[in-house]
């Protein structure tokens, strides 16, 4: 704020000097006339600047056209949120009816709550595990072992969610071929003659399993940015800690972790803006038995749009618009938080 006030003051001082200069040169007799002349001069300067940089502006035209066509033109679809729009028949204007239906539908609120809960907790958990793994990788002395381990933990990130879901569905199957249930039965942890735990269709189990799968898939990839930060820590800090008699664990706690704090916050802030975009990971793992704890806005929109013969695209556009507005709000919030914490925004 103070910076802005200072800039404003400087601008005013420069303006006053320019006006005095104009009066001195005889181009104007009083301050009012001088201000008009200055305005004229500024306008001429502005167009001259544009003319001088005309090459750059010409180059920018295709970009501007593409941005309008690809980013803003599709936004015309927003109007369908205010219409009854089915695959058959012309769309009919219904005002806010789709929003009224949305806000009075329990399934919508369930999916909204689930989106925030699953996304935010997933973000916190994967960030936390990435930090832990990064710290331990950083402590590894054997370079080949470190690189091998890094490669191994990166690999799940490159598997598609469909493949991941197929693998875990087989492993977690409650039928006699399910590996996890087989182990639990062999160890007598669950009744060997029972039907096993239906992990992916059990409300108590679905969320923990979902988080575990996400941690398994994304932790490795999440370590990339933290390892980059760790490689930038000044070795003298560790040497100083060693001289002061710090143990290895104390070095981690008092040198490594504080060095990572800023990066952790940045990663959290940047990802917080994307929390409304959860779809694929839930879509491939959920089912009707666990809608209460798993259905997110995107999967709710998908079911309302594509699993019925004659969907109302207007309604699902309204839900999508609401999702985008909340997402936009989160981006602004993150921008504000970023400015507060690191002095510059993300926008």
């Amino acid at each position: 704020m103070a910076e802005k006030i200072n800039k404003k003051k400087t601008d005013e001082t420069v303006r006053k000097k320019q006006i005095e200069e104009i009066i001195r040169s005889g181009s104007a007799s009083n301050e009012e006339e001088a201000a008009a002349v200055l305005k004229k001069q500024n306008r001429r300067r502005f167009w001259k600047k544009i003319w001088n940089d005309k090459g750059f502006y010409l180059m920018f035209i295709p970009v501007a056209v593409l941005v309008i066509l690809l980013y803003y033109w599709p936004m015309l679809g927003i109007r369908f949120a205010f219409m009854d729009y089915k695959p058959v028949g012309a769309p009919k204007w219904v005002g806010l009816a789709n929003f009224q239906k949305m806000f009075s539908t329990g399934a919508f609120w369930t999916s909204f709550g689930n989106t925030l809960f699953l996304s935010i907790l997933k973000l916190l958990l994967t960030t936390f595990t990435s930090v832990i793994v990064s710290v331990f990788l950083n402590e590894m002395r054997l370079l080949w072992a470190k690189k091998t381990l890094q490669t191994l933990i990166y690999l799940p990130h490159f598997m598609s969610w469909a493949v991941v879901a197929a693998i875990f569905s087989l492993m977690l199957s409650p039928s006699s071929t399910g590996m996890i249930n087989g182990i639990l039965k062999d160890l007598n942890i669950i009744d060997p003659n029972g039907s096993g735990i239906y992990f992916l269709a059990n409300k108590a189990w679905w969320r923990p399993i979902f988080f575990l799968i996400n941690i398994w898939k994304e932790t490795g990839w999440g370590t990339v940015i933290f390892l980059a930060t760790l490689s930038g820590i000044n070795p003298e800090l560790y040497e100083a800690a060693q001289i002061d008699g710090a143990t290895r664990m104390q070095s981690i706690l008092h040198v490594t972790v504080p060095a990572l704090a800023q990066t952790i916050i940045i990663v959290l802030i940047l990802n917080l803006a994307k929390v409304m975009n959860m779809f694929e990971s839930v879509f491939v793992l959920y089912n009707s038995a666990v809608y209460d704890v798993s259905d997110v806005i995107s999967t709710y929109i998908y079911r309302q749009t594509f699993t019925i013969a004659l969907p109302n695209y207007g309604y699902t556009t309204a839900v999508g618009l609401f999702k985008s507005l909340v997402g936009g709000g989160l981006v602004i919030l993150c921008n504000w938080a970023s400015k507060k914490i690191r002095g510059r925004g993300i926008l």
Partner: peptide, 8 residues
């Protein structure tokens, strides 16, 4: 955009 309610 919303006002572009041509109905089609």
């Amino acid at each position: 955009l919303v006002a572009c309610n041509s109905g089609t």
